[in-house]
Nucleic acid binder design. Structure first.
Length: 258
DNA sequence: AAAAATCGCAACCGCGGCAGA
DNA sequence: ATCTGCCGCGGTTGCGATTTT
């Protein structure tokens, strides 16, 4: 005999999630963590299968999700990674903290694919299409997507920023650990900017509260975050989960949240 | 202003690898 | 050793929102 079935489909709710369901799932996971998805809906009082709960959490409720428009630099990186990894969206998503594989996949299918086609590139192989395939493409569309010199400058600038952010992320642990061990801070503008990059991410939390209809929560204790220096840019979510002080943030939000 | 077409995204489905019984 | 469920992944679908006619 194997395990119990994870998903008895009889009587289970499907389709879009309500705010009430979101709250139940969020409260349960924040209070209990994730041991076994099969048990989550039962224990959280949801008429959903574990698979559906997992998907909802990963793609929508996770506190570290970064929502918003994609930058040119991000799109370029997706294209580059896709050329190396193919449709392995989870692998690609690993390079984009705060973005989900589903989000990247959707963006690829709805935007980037078309962009590549208009550039005369095959989205599958990333190689130029043959002449006959290109014949259908309007000159105007090609002109639209071929970067002007001005646009190329912008892209270069975004690439540079992206590189600098990555570099900052790598250096951040070192500098923060230095501060921790020496008890001093360089207090340079540069260091402050590095912290602000991370705090910007954390500030996304209120948007989530708003979407859940939660109000009158306390502001995050930024100074508290600043003295806990265990950030690793490679996998912020895992660090977030592993880090007790991050859970402390939610407790500070008060009873309205939990 | 209304209908039709298109877009964007959340959610579902099915498969494969892994691991528990 | 084998069977079967769990989990994660990629493909696909459905539907609300937006744009076009």
């Amino acid at each position: 005999m194997g395990r119990q079935p994870s998903c008895d489909k009889v009587g289970l709710k499907r389709g879009h999630w309500t705010i009430e369901e979101d709250n139940k799932l969020m409260n349960f996971i924040l209070n209990n963590g994730i041991q076994c998805w099969r048990l989550v809906p039962k224990l959280a009082g949801l008429m959903r299968c574990g698979k559906s709960c997992r998907l909802r959490w990963i793609n929508y409720l996770r506190p570290d999700l970064k929502r918003g428009a994609w930058t040119e630099a991000e799109e370029d990186m997706i294209i580059q990674l896709h050329s190396q990894l193919g449709n392995r969206w989870s692998k690609i998503a690993a390079h984009f903290p705060g973005r989900t594989d589903n989000e990247i996949k959707n963006h690829w299918n709805t935007k980037i694919k078309k962009k590549l086609k208009c550039l005369g590139l095959d989205p599958l192989t990333h190689k130029p299409n043959n002449q006959s395939d290109n014949s259908a493409i309007k000159t105007e569309e090609i002109r639209e997507y071929n970067s002007s010199s001005q646009e190329q400058e912008i892209v270069k600038e975004l690439d540079l920023q992206d590189f600098q952010m990555q570099e900052n992320g790598q250096n951040l642990n070192t500098s923060l650990n230095e501060q921790k061990s020496t008890g001093t801070s360089s207090s340079s503008l540069d260091e402050e900017n590095k912290l602000l990059c991370i705090l910007d991410e954390i500030k996304e939390f209120p948007k989530m509260e708003e979407s859940l209809g939660i109000q009158d929560t306390q502001p995050l204790d930024i100074s508290y975050i600043g003295v806990n220096n265990d950030f690793q840019m490679e996998d912020p979510f895992q660090n977030w989960i592993n880090s007790p002080f991050q859970w402390e943030i939610f407790r500070s939000l008060g009873d309205n949240f939990l």
